[in-house]
Design a protein around this nucleic acid. Structure first.
Lengths: 219, 219
DNA sequence: ATTGAATTGTGATATATGCAACAGAAAAGG
DNA sequence: CCTTTTCTGTTGCATATATCACAATTCAAT
């Protein structure tokens, strides 16, 4: 349950009054939960789990673990981040997917299908919620597009540069800070960590990037 | 302009009456255009192009062309497919993105930002449209997730198998047909074509898949 | 039917990337 | 504070993948 101030900041309940918010919670069987770093937030392999989670505060990550136990970061979820089985099409049968808490966060679980269905007694605020949800899905699609943009590059060098340009653009500056560790970055661009380090060294030597810890500069 | 029957099949105008449909067209400055295979449907590099396109009928593809002229298939768009600059975050500065017609198709262009904004005189059917749009964005996010799933695999073999399992799942059978040519497939999984062919041969030799032309069977 | 273009199939070679293993630096936890 | 874990940085070696090059085949258009 959110306070009035928190409500104003909520990605999903933007522009919704406190009363409407309360009635929507029951309408969508919404449940909010708090998590600590390392906690398992959501398990895709669990059956009859059609709920969708929305990160209201803090950060989490969507992880895939394949048959051999290799884990890959599928998405980094910040406030407004959306996840759920119906959204991910849990890839190959063998591997499992889960959402893990990174920094202390609040997650709201709602009955998502309800939102897509034509609803007879759809109240007024209902449609505002749908619109907010559309905005979140829009952001998600955008984030995924960027990810595909990076992953579709043919070499480690190109992947790195593509990702760096994205971050640089977002930061509005040639200098930016990585949102995670270098080892997680290797995961993110789906390559071997040591190979990535080697390529990074070359980029530095050739004067294409400068880096100090997680701070980078494109030249 | 759609006929009444076409309206019923339209992904975006589901459950909207013909009258409402007409008024929505003007409200969202919608324009519908028909295209022939090979036509350029949309150019991301064109400025002040904030419209969003929705494939109503037929098929198209979102293509990225990098500095060196290497082109990559970013998305395959069928009916209900959505594209636009605001959705793609046209990656790195150097390369261009465009949507090209594959099979004869109708595309509807609408003022998308209008849909996300809080609208004073938001009419009733307005919210139905938003809900339909949410469904389309949901599908798009799902498709992109699957793409990421494939691209994040570490080897050609794993990429192929992952993609094959997806197609198999969609077809509801071990046997399925590729939606495009083998060379395009290489593009799609972001690897070299000849390397992919070699790996495919191995998969066949090891009895993991059987293939005849574009028809495949997982064993 | 006949040309031309795109697709498919396959090899020989160079190279980029993955793998395993290690050690110091930094961060997290008690 | 010390301990433990994670992160960083680097190497030699094996191998997967890209490059280039060449026919055979299918497909599209005239």
């Amino acid at each position: 349950m959110l306070s009035q101030q928190e409500l104003a900041k909520s990605p999903l309940f933007q522009d919704i009054s406190y009363e409407d918010y309360r009635s929507l919670l029951t309408c969508f069987q919404a449940v909010q939960k708090a998590f600590r770093p390392g906690d398992l937030i959501y398990d895709f392999s669990a059956p009859n789990n059609d709920a969708v989670g929305i990160v209201e505060r803090g950060g989490a990550a969507l992880i895939r673990i394949d048959e051999e136990g290799v884990s890959t970061v599928m998405e980094e979820l910040g406030p407004g981040g959306v996840f759920g089985r119906t959204l991910a099409f849990a890839g190959s049968s063998g591997d499992s997917m889960e959402v893990v808490c990174r920094t202390p966060c609040d997650v709201l679980f709602i009955d998502y299908p309800h939102m897509l269905k034509r609803c007879e007694h759809a109240c007024g605020h209902h449609s505002v919620l749908v619109q907010n949800m559309l905005r979140l899905m829009n952001d998600k699609a955008q984030a995924l597009s960027q990810r595909v943009d990076v992953l579709s590059r043919r070499s480690i060098r190109e992947k790195l540069l593509c990702y760096f340009r994205q971050l640089s653009k977002k930061a509005g500056s040639n200098t930016f800070v990585l949102p995670f560790s270098l080892s997680t970055l290797a995961d993110y661009i789906a390559t071997d960590r040591s190979a990535m380090m080697r390529e990074l060294k070359r980029l530095r030597e050739e004067g294409i990037v400068r880096s100090d810890g997680r701070q980078f500069t494109l030249l």
